[in-house]
Design a binder for these strands. Sequence first.
DNA 1: AAAATGATCAAG
DNA 2: TTGATCATTTTA
Length: 204
Amino acid sequence: MNKLNKSFYERDAIVVAKELIGKYLVHNYNGRKLVGKIVETEAYMGAKDKAAHSYNYRRTKRNEVMYGPAGHTYIYLIYGMYYCFNIVTNNSDNPQGVLIRALEPIAGIEEMAYNRYKQPLSALKKAEVYNLTSGPGKLTQALQITKEHYGTNLLSDKIYVLNSNDKYEIKTSPRINIDYAEEAIHYPWRFYIKGNNFVSKPHD
DNA sequence: AAAATGATCAAG
DNA sequence: TTGATCATTTTA
């Protein structure tokens, strides 16, 4: 399978978020490939979206990368503890992003078990296996994605997304934990694979 | 239900 | 300079 190219990312975050479902996120880490299937995303639509960090063209050191070319990472620390991994979409005039909310572990699972639990995969309970990558803060910990990867080009060999033509039944819901976003609270811009065990919150 | 935990941001 | 916030997770 090939990497998604730049034009894939140069579209509205809603379209990219939906189409990223079922694709494969790869982190080349210490010579190993940590790979997860993207099973849950959220679109942040930029200037007109009160939930977005770039609402009203708000531009700070943190979100600066959203004002650059599409297909780069936007990573930030949340709640002082966890990193959120986003992909910049559209173009400089439309600072949008897609939050990757959950993955299904595909390769490097042994490494993920260590990164999350400091234990071998065989020592994990079933619930702990489902807990490896089933949330935005969990997946960055499992794949060892941190602030040092801020602004990484997804056309590089460090972090990228592989295409897939597999089809899934995609469900839609409001986005998670954006209570501050007023009318945008209810916009149906969260996408996930129906019935997948690694989705952060199956319901809604 | 509530703690953990600290960079970031806008106000002053 | 400071105080509130926060696209979360874990534990209880």
